[in-house]
Amino acid sequence: MSVNNYIRERFFPHLWCPGCGHGTILNALLRTVESLGIDKSNMCMVSGIGCSARISGYVDFHSMHSMHGRALACATGIKMIKPELNVVVPMGDGDAMAIGGNHFIHACRRNIDMVAIIMNNRIYGMTGGQYSPLSGSGILATTAPYRSIDREFDATQLAMGAGATFVARTTAFHVKEIGSLLKKAFEHKGFSVVEVLTQCPTYFGRKNKFGGPVQMLEWYRDNTAPLGSKKLEENSDLIPRGVFRQVDAPEYCAEYAKIVEKAHKE
């Protein structure tokens, strides 16, 4: 099947746990790249560290498995030298929002053309289930044995506040929506953020008695609603999904090309 043309088959089965949503996001991403007809040699993936970051080893793209939280900074260097590359940066929630938070807001601000995917499973999985800045209060984790008192924040709101020009959210349950939002993100010229709420059945689910992967996906099904839907209007407790923002703004590499031109004239 064609999606297999985009992966490094020899590394499968992958290392993610049974029922981990990261694989579903990889699945949707590959289909998006395929549907857009992007040549693999024009695809560059930069990831950080963590469960999510292992995604870069599985794709048959130019792939950089960088440092914890630093993927966007590394990707910025690549993109500035090779603006023609399609750069995609998948990150975990701790990766993107804690240790990489500063890089994240400034990549949003610069509006550099790349697709940032926040694979938000609300936990540090690779290290064994510590709470993340997106876990939220009241959550059990190995570092929150008495339940977390840390408040979470909304990654999409942060992205918008920092100036990202495409911001969207979906979940690992809404598999077609992941594809359609990623497609829009790739087509958008500027910094795109797609948050995908995903399940970590091994640590988050088990510790918090959320059940297995199926129950966690059902929770995302039942507790989210599309932007502008009646369902969301009637119940503000639901988590909104969809495109929060899509605006045109000067893109960083294009603006730098103008600087090069200007410098040559002066």
Binding site: I7, P13, H22, G23, T24, N27, R31
Partner: peptide
């Protein structure tokens, strides 16, 4: 589309 293991075609 759902399969996290890319096992289904």
């Amino acid at each position: 589309l759902y399969c996290p293991d890319l096992a289904v075609t």
